[in-house]
């Protein structure tokens, strides 16, 4: 193995990793936001709206991310949606993640005991206040482990963005491999970066979980 080439390619790999983290972070945040909105609509909107959303969920979950990205990036211009690679990648990730996040939130909301919602109704709280003060905090807490888990899965979906030329880590690694034929070194670096990212996310996730469930778990004495 020859690590001297990293002097030359180090900076572009680092930049690539930065783009990867950025894509992952924004894709996750937007995907979660969209998923949350979908889950709330499913809970409160009339049934026919729920059906339409269910179709969206099935279509997105039933097709590979790669295909969705191609449709968005190369098919988008046909309907006037002309996006640069990065915004297209972000939009793609957001859409791809949203139904999974929606399902996670939906089951998180279902885990909130109905009696606690009824207690709020019984004292005359309005539905928006119930959502904000009871349903969301409790539902989010029970969703947290699955949210972290799916966010970790999403880190690895970002490599697909290289196909539409988003200059993220995979893109830089491929460039380096084809220019130097150092496939092993390049992919080792790729693995290392992803391992670091995943490890960080999972640690933050555990901390967060411990913090938010502190008062919810019965003390054992």
């Amino acid at each position: 193995m020859d690590f001297a080439i990293f002097e030359q390619y180090g900076p572009s790999l680092l930049r690539g990793f930065g783009v990867t983290v950025l894509c992952w972070l924004l894709g996750t945040v937007f995907g979660m936001a969209l998923g949350l909105v979908i889950a709330l609509i499913q809970r409160y909107a009339p049934r026919w709206v729920g059906w339409i959303i269910q179709i969206y969920i099935e279509v997105i979950r039933g097709t590979p991310f790669l295909v969705q990205l191609f449709v968005l990036y190369y098919g988008g211009p046909l309907i006037g949606l002309r996006l640069d690679a990065l915004p297209a990648g972000l939009l793609g990730l957001t859409i791809y993640g949203s139904p999974y996040f929606a399902e996670i939130f939906r089951s998180g909301f279902r885990a909130v005991p109905h009696g606690q919602i009824e207690a709020a109704r019984a004292i005359g709280m309005a539905e928006p206040a119930i959502i904000r003060r009871i349903l969301l905090p409790l539902g989010l807490v029970s969703s947290l482990p699955a949210l972290v888990n799916f966010s970790i899965i999403l880190t690895k979906e970002t490599v697909i963005l290289s196909i539409i030329t988003v200059p993220e880590l995979m893109y830089q690694v491929s460039r380096m491999s084809t220019e130097t034929f150092r496939y092993l070194e390049a992919n080792l670096v790729l693995a290392l970066f992803f391992w670091a990212l995943v490890e960080t996310i999972s640690r933050i996730g555990h901390r967060l979980e411990a913090r938010v469930t502190k008062h919810l778990i019965e003390e054992r004495t």
């Binding site: 005991p113 009696g115 606690q116 009824e118 207690a119 003060r133 905090p137 409790l138 008062h215």
Partner: peptide
């Protein structure tokens, strides 16, 4: 007042 108390645990 409910059988299961239904306090908000958070």
């Amino acid at each position: 007042v409910f059988q299961q108390f239904n306090l908000w645990p958070h």
